[in-house]
Design a protein around this nucleic acid. Structure first.
Length: 317
RNA sequence: UAGCGACUCCUAUCU
């Protein structure tokens, strides 16, 4: 069963969910019936592939036949799948069922999934309501719950409110993590508050949270987008001194920055460095390079770059 | 009593 489940996951991860469904059939023929974990794997895959109906069919039709009982994870996957296709109402129904019938009872993840759905739609009032509901039934929020809400606020540019939520976390003895801070920093940068973001970075250190590549990349991008090259350089130096490595996204930010200034050769140098460090340019790298060349009227050069990308390898297919 | 499978939620870069 283990082996088959791993295989099922492999198929699902490569979006070949139809093959995964066939695999379930094959397992039964081999007398090696899938268990709940196997089902969860496939259900999760179907949900990620926006095929919630098929996932629900599995739960209702096939699982009982194999004597499998859906667990929290099964339902959480369904809830997530429903939310991602915009059917929050149906998702709420499942959650309610779980609460009332305790088929299994919901866990924090169940609530978080719904929270995330509301926050992604900018419906913070509903999100707050869910949080209150959780509290009223004695279900604790965790870091992720708060991070989801922080993300919702940050995306709406409600920075001061986000700051308050962060303080509330601390007051509730839920320690903010790197992600919490990164969300806040990102929101600030989008609102043009790059310097405030830089302050947060310093505050992180004093709070014992190590800023990571994402923290630095976010602020770097903020500086670059506003032409604050000197500050960007300084930050980059800081980042390297901390022993952090640049990843593809960081390079993309830098390449875009120098490209905007029309420094094409500089961009190419960065691209080379990137490869030397074993990083593969992705779709975004290609787009940045090609766009900047075309804007400078160097269409031929753009085609040349595209070809070389192809030859030297890229994740952009 | 430890070591293998699921899964469940959050953050950065182009268009």
């Amino acid at each position: 069963v283990f082996t088959y489940t791993i295989l099922a996951k492999g198929l699902c991860d490569t979006s070949r969910t139809d093959r995964a469904l066939e695999l379930l059939e094959e397992m039964r023929l081999q007398g090696c019936n899938p268990n709940t974990v196997t089902y969860n794997t496939v259900i999760y895959g179907l949900c990620k592939f926006d095929n919630v109906e098929a996932a629900e069919q599995l739960v209702q039709r096939q699982m009982p036949g194999d004597g499998c009982v859906p667990n929290v994870i099964t339902y959480n996957s369904l809830i997530d799948g429903l939310c991602k296709v915009g059917k929050i109402e149906s998702a709420l129904k499942i959650l309610k069922d779980m609460e009332e019938k305790l088929i299994p009872g919901p866990d924090t993840t169940s609530f978080n999934t719904i929270l995330d759905a509301f926050c992604k739609e900018g419906k913070l009032k509903k999100a707050y309501k869910i949080m209150e509901h959780m509290k009223s039934i004695g279900h604790a929020c965790n870091v992720v719950s708060y991070n989801i809400v922080l993300g919702g606020l940050a995306k709406l540019g409600r920075i001061s409110e986000a700051r308050r939520v962060l303080e509330e976390m601390v007051a509730n003895n839920i320690a903010p993590n790197v992600v919490s801070y990164n969300i806040l920093v990102d929101g600030m940068c989008r609102e043009g508050m790059v310097y405030d973001a830089n302050m947060i970075l310093k505050a992180m250190r004093t709070n014992g949270i190590k800023p990571d590549t994402i923290t630095y990349s976010t602020i770097l991008d903020g500086f670059c987008k506003r032409g604050k090259i000197a500050q960007a350089r300084e930050l980059l130096g800081e980042m390297l001194r901390e022993g952090l490595l640049l990843n593809t996204v960081t390079y993309n930010i830098l390449i875009q920055s120098v490209s905007k200034e029309g420094r094409i050769s500089e961009a190419e140098k960065l691209l080379q460095k990137m490869r030397q460090r074993g990083l593969t340019p992705d779709t975004i790298t290609c787009n940045i390079m090609i766009q900047s060349l075309c804007k400078n009227g160097k269409v031929d050069k753009a085609i040349q770059v595209m070809d070389s990308m192809w030859v030297q390898g890229t994740d952009a297919i």
